[in-house]
Design a protein around this nucleic acid. Structure first.
Length: 320
DNA sequence: AAAGCTACCAACCGCTCTATG
DNA sequence: GCATAGAGCGGTTGGTAGCTT
């Protein structure tokens, strides 16, 4: 049993708005305002429309300073960033984009931006299973955003894959991240919560890439401490930057501290440093020199001159 | 040229939230 | 504290334009 309909559907017009209806509504609101009552407005304005329909038409189309058309790279970046942090709260996202409506952004996300994200997937042969051990491992930590305190993965639960028939999740080696149920505020439908493919002999850093920004540096912002334009949370690594057993480099990103963990390592396998203390470094928009310096500072024996920066599908790979 | 398919987006639906009496 | 109405929101639907076969 839902609530009673707001109007008699048999006596109101539905479907696309005509130019005449648009001008009636616009004229009325510009003259009298909404009066804080959408239900009675259509009657006063001489429209045979539901109040909700009028409200939607006004907010999404007729009100002044509405921006239609292509989204800029910057807008893409903001949408990606906010989606990662707060999920599908379109009205909140729209509030950050002057002239854009929640409906517009929602449509844009569903029809274009999301697909760009999915385009991140590399061919199967290039993908790799997540190096995550089972959630009861005591060796891995997430980060509490607010305190930056490591949270053991023992509190994490695997996130199930979305059942979207249009996307071939099942045919990829995408592996769910583990979600900390106590801390996480991220929607389970958030595609960014899935592990990203990595390549052999590569470090893959920070940028989420898929947001079609011209520099490929779609940023996953923090929302609170880190400004919108800045990059995702932290990477942490074992004290020497490499795992002690396999000589693998491991990076974990904590997107906004909200317990999205993207562990990536040079090659598959285990060998995490057993409970060793981890260096936490703000992960900003690294350039090649930054990366070299970063690695150098964490591993004195590594020849950083062998590292090359490659941009592919909007992601930065550091090849050596 | 016509049918089928896909992408896009305006509009609708139904739920939750909030204000008010 | 409760009931109700209206507003707001996110998910979904359906029409249509453009493309492909």
């Amino acid at each position: 049993m839902g609530r009673a309909p707001c109007c008699d559907k048999t006596s109101v017009k539905r479907g696309p708005w005509s130019p005449e209806e648009d001008s009636k509504l616009k004229e009325y609101i510009e003259k009298h305002g909404t009066g804080g009552n959408w239900i009675s407005l259509p009657n006063k304005a001489g429209l045979k429309r539901c109040g909700k329909s009028c409200r939607l038409r006004w907010l999404n189309y007729l009100r002044p300073n509405i921006k239609h058309g292509d989204f800029s790279d910057e807008e893409d970046r903001i949408i990606c960033s906010l989606y990662v942090n707060i999920g599908s709260r379109w009205s909140v996202i729209a509030a950050q984009l002057p002239g854009r409506t929640d409906n517009d952004i929602k449509n844009y996300w569903n029809t274009k931006l999301k697909k760009k994200l999915m385009g991140l997937q590399l061919p199967i042969s290039h993908q790799r299973k997540s190096p995550f051990p089972p959630p009861n491992s005591s060796h891995l930590f997430s980060l509490d955003y607010f305190s930056h305190t490591p949270i053991p993965f023992t509190n994490l639960e695997p996130i199930s894959l979305p059942s979207n028939n249009n996307n071939n999740y099942a045919n990829t080696s995408f592996t769910p991240f583990y979600q900390n149920q106590e801390y996480s505020m991220i929607s389970v439908n958030n595609p960014m919560q899935y592990n990203y493919p990595i390549k052999d002999n590569m470090f893959m850093f920070g940028s989420e890439g898929s947001c079609s920004s011209s520099d490929g540096s779609c940023t996953l912002s923090h929302g609170k401490e880190i400004k919108q334009e800045e990059n995702i949370g932290y990477h942490h690594m074992s004290s020497n930057g490499f795992d002690d057993y396999n000589n693998n480099f491991m990076i974990s990103c904590n997107n906004g501290g909200e317990n999205i963990n993207q562990y990536e390592e040079k090659s598959s396998g285990v060998g995490y440093t057993n409970g060793q203390s981890q260096t936490l470094t703000p992960l900003l928009d690294y350039g090649l020199e930054d990366i070299k310096q970063l690695i150098c500072s964490n591993n004195k024996g590594f020849n950083v001159d062998e590292i090359h920066k490659i941009e592919e599908n909007g992601m930065y790979y550091y090849h050596y």
